[in-house]
Design a protein around this nucleic acid. Structure first.
Lengths: 80, 80
DNA sequence: TACCATTTGTCCGTATGTATG
DNA sequence: CCATACATACGGACAAATGGT
């Protein structure tokens, strides 16, 4: 699932997979995606890499993160 | 008790000590092992490290964890 | 009901060391 | 040298479940 030989960085590949799951509806709006630990276990990558991937998605506005809770699909709510 | 110089990661050493205590009967089946805070105090390690150690034991099926309660010796009950 | 202590779950930031391209 | 990636380890903050007062 992850190609370590190709030119695309692993963290970008992980981000792409998660983005695809969001697009498919595997990960649903306002629902959390798996935790960093789960993701690094599933993809077999380091924490560094998972965090870089999630950071990318956050930059793209695909997810937002709430400290102590998790990372959610969608745009960050103004407040609550 | 913990060797930070050797090749064995600290979290593996902690896991080994806990596993030994289970084998010895110091920690008893269906009874909780000390909390993460207690363990990090005893071993002088970070919570991160304790959680990695407990995670190992969980993978080995030696313990199971219930959020808000603790980590218990034995196999996880199906339901209750 | 409300509050509180304990415990685990999750994320954040940092740091060190190794290795590859 | 630098970016990427892995592994380990530290410390902190906040969230949520549990159980008791």
């Amino acid at each position: 699932m992850i190609d370590r030989e190709g030119p695309t960085p692993v963290y970008v590949q992980v981000a792409d997979v998660i983005a695809a799951r969001i697009a498919e509806g595997t990960y649903v709006a306002n629902r959390p995606i798996p935790s960093e630990i789960r993701l690094q276990q599933e993809f077999g990558v380091a924490r560094d890499t998972v965090r870089a991937a999630v950071g990318l998605l956050r930059t793209r506005g695909l997810v937002f993160t709430v400290r102590g809770k998790g990372t959610y699909v969608g745009a960050a709510p103004d407040l609550e």
